[in-house]
Design a protein around this nucleic acid. Structure first.
Lengths: 136, 136
DNA sequence: CTTAATGCAAAAACTTTGCACCGCT
DNA sequence: AGCGGTGCAAAGTTTTTGCATTAAG
């Protein structure tokens, strides 16, 4: 089996994910990490993001618009996407709720449930404020 | 403003969505509708699926793997994707739960919440059975 | 030295779009 | 007739992949 080998690029990507709350797309990660590794390729970014997600060290957030987004916060939580500015926000829900939902789902499904992802759609405060000021 | 005009192609697509439970991808819809309209194009299928989704006559299910899927059942409900065979199943949850979740989320979010989509990950009975029979 | 990871570029997968023509109203 | 829808093909977007080279163990 393939043993994972350290790479400075992957470390940098993980470091970035762990310190940002903006839920970047692969391309945003690429643009950022490129400041430290000017020769890094987008392919490498994708490979490492997928690796991190597979290892459980990052979460891949599938969104309807644009590309997937990545989150270094692996603690179970939900997300809100603002349908106005497209930004993604964390939403912390009582942790017990996550398990409760999985169990509830399993009762209604002929099979086993491992996990779930919930994406809320709404409008963030910034966008609400901008709309209000435009209605003058 | 653009008035919506009837089209046999769109009617056929909607008819198909309303009578299947397989949550087809755009391509699957294309392959199916092509039996009735051999000259229909994939572009037309995409245009109509997006139209139906915008009109609230279908739901677009964003999945992590492959393309988006479509559901003619617009009644609020959740979905389970089998991580083994990639099929998508309906999951009927108490309707009140949907609103409760939106309100709950709004309490924890600085903005407004309109809706949410939840996708469960699990293994369907068919795949569980196949795994068991392989472990002989 | 051995093998995983990278950079690069090409390709794959999915979706949208411009345009001339067709069909609904 | 007027305008929206279609078919077709081309292009756009996002993600993956083959391969020679580089770097980690």
């Amino acid at each position: 089996m393939a043993t994972l080998k350290y790479s400075r690029q992957r470390a940098s990507i993980k470091e970035y994910l762990d310190h940002t709350t903006e839920h970047p797309t692969a391309d945003t990660v690429y643009l950022h990490v490129r400041e430290e590794f000017p020769r890094i390729s987008l392919g490498t970014v994708y490979r490492n993001l997928n690796l991190l997600a597979d290892m459980g060290e990052a979460i891949k957030i599938t969104t309807p618009d644009g590309g997937d987004r990545f989150d270094g916060n692996t603690h179970p939580h939900y997300h809100v996407v603002c349908t106005c500015c497209n930004r993604v926000f964390d939403l912390h829900i009582d942790e017990a709720h996550i398990n409760t939902m999985n169990k509830l789902a399993e009762e209604h499904f002929d099979g086993t449930i491992d996990s779930h992802a919930t994406l809320f759609y709404g409008t963030c405060q910034d966008c609400l404020t901008q709309k209000t000021s435009r209605e003058s």
